[in-house]
Simulated assay, not measured.
Amino acid sequence: MISYRPFFQTLLKKNITEYALIYKQGISANTIHRMKKGLPITTKTLDELCFILDCGIDDIIELVKEE
């Protein structure tokens, strides 16, 4: 299962708010909502987030093995 926990940790480390992503960077509020619920996002969105946050994919998502 993919987790977006690293994304929210990256936001805290970089002192960037969800508000800034939505209203200053143009990320859809629905995208943030989907990430909070653990729902899928597109690779295009993942690429945009990496560019905006100047980070790698592993700073946005992680694979959590279900046991």
Rank of each mutant, 00 (worst) to 15 (best):
M1H: 09
I2G: 07
S3N: 12
R5V: 11
P6S: 07
P6Q: 10
F7L: 13
F8S: 10
F8M: 10
F8L: 06
Q9G: 03
Q9I: 04
L11Y: 13
L11H: 09
L12C: 02
K13S: 14
K13H: 04
K14A: 05
N15T: 04
I16G: 02
I16F: 07
T17Y: 11
E18P: 01
E18C: 13
A20Q: 15
A20S: 12
L21Y: 01
L21V: 06
I22F: 01
I22T: 10
Y23H: 15
Q25D: 02
G26L: 04
G26E: 09
G26T: 07
I27Q: 00
I27N: 02
S28H: 07
S28R: 06
S28C: 05
N30K: 13
I32P: 03
I32N: 01
I32A: 11
I32G: 09
H33L: 08
H33S: 15
R34N: 10
R34A: 03
M35V: 02
G38A: 11
G38E: 13
G38R: 11
G38Y: 11
L39Q: 15
L39F: 09
L39C: 08
P40T: 11
T42N: 09
T42Q: 11
T43F: 12
T43A: 12
T43M: 14
K44V: 04
L46S: 10
L46D: 06
D47I: 05
D47A: 13
L49C: 06
C50D: 01
C50G: 00
C50F: 03
F51H: 01
I52S: 00
L53E: 08
D54Q: 13
D54L: 06
D54F: 00
G56D: 15
G56V: 00
G56I: 00
I57W: 04
D58E: 14
D58M: 07
D59I: 03
D59W: 03
I61E: 06
V64Y: 03
K65C: 04
K65R: 12
K65L: 14
E67Y: 08
